[in-house]
Simulated scan of single mutants.
Amino acid sequence: MYRRSKFLEVLIDIRQEMAREADFDTDLFVELVRSGRNDPARSKYQVSEEHKVSENKSSRRKSG
């Protein structure tokens, strides 16, 4: 068999590290969902509230 180039070795290492990070992020997300914890800093960006903001902007345009 042939020897892998240095570039390929580094690329494989990077891909393995990214895969581990993605696994960790997935595990963390599952843990947050299962525990029911809610981050107040993120809750202000919920879709329902964003939809209400866009409705308010459109109603102001119509009335003005």
Rank of each mutant, 00 (worst) to 15 (best):
M1A: 12
Y2R: 15
Y2V: 15
Y2F: 14
R3G: 06
R3T: 10
R4L: 11
R4A: 12
R4N: 12
S5N: 01
S5C: 00
S5F: 00
K6P: 08
K6G: 10
K6C: 07
F7Q: 15
F7P: 04
F7V: 06
L8C: 04
E9Q: 14
E9W: 04
E9A: 12
E9G: 11
V10N: 15
V10P: 04
L11P: 02
L11W: 04
I12M: 03
D13H: 12
D13P: 06
I14P: 01
I14Q: 12
I14W: 07
R15D: 13
R15C: 13
R15L: 15
E17D: 13
E17Q: 10
E17M: 09
E17P: 03
E17T: 13
M18S: 09
M18R: 13
M18P: 02
R20S: 07
R20T: 07
E21C: 07
E21A: 08
E21Y: 09
A22V: 05
A22H: 02
A22R: 05
D23S: 11
D23G: 14
D23H: 08
D23Y: 06
F24P: 00
F24L: 14
F24I: 15
D25R: 08
T26N: 02
T26Y: 01
D27I: 07
D27H: 05
D27P: 00
D27F: 02
F29M: 10
F29I: 12
F29K: 09
F29S: 12
V30Y: 08
V30F: 06
V30G: 06
E31R: 06
E31L: 06
E31A: 08
L32T: 05
L32W: 01
L32C: 09
V33N: 01
V33S: 05
R34Q: 14
R34A: 11
R34S: 10
R34H: 09
S35D: 01
S35C: 00
G36H: 00
G36P: 00
R37H: 12
R37Q: 13
N38H: 10
N38E: 15
N38Y: 12
D39F: 02
D39N: 12
D39K: 02
D39Q: 03
D39R: 02
P40C: 00
R42Y: 09
R42Q: 15
R42N: 13
R42K: 11
S43C: 04
S43A: 13
K44N: 08
K44R: 13
Q46R: 13
Q46C: 13
Q46E: 15
V47S: 04
S48P: 00
S48M: 05
S48I: 04
S48R: 11
E49S: 13
E50M: 11
H51W: 11
H51Q: 14
H51I: 15
K52I: 10
K52F: 03
K52W: 03
V53Y: 10
V53C: 03
V53I: 10
V53P: 03
V53H: 14
V53K: 15
S54F: 09
S54V: 10
E55P: 00
E55A: 01
E55V: 03
N56S: 07
N56T: 04
N56H: 06
N56P: 00
K57A: 05
K57G: 01
S59G: 01
S59D: 05
S59V: 01
S59P: 00
R60C: 02
R60K: 06
R60W: 02
R60P: 00
R60I: 02
R61C: 01
K62G: 02
S63V: 05
S63H: 03
G64K: 10
G64M: 08
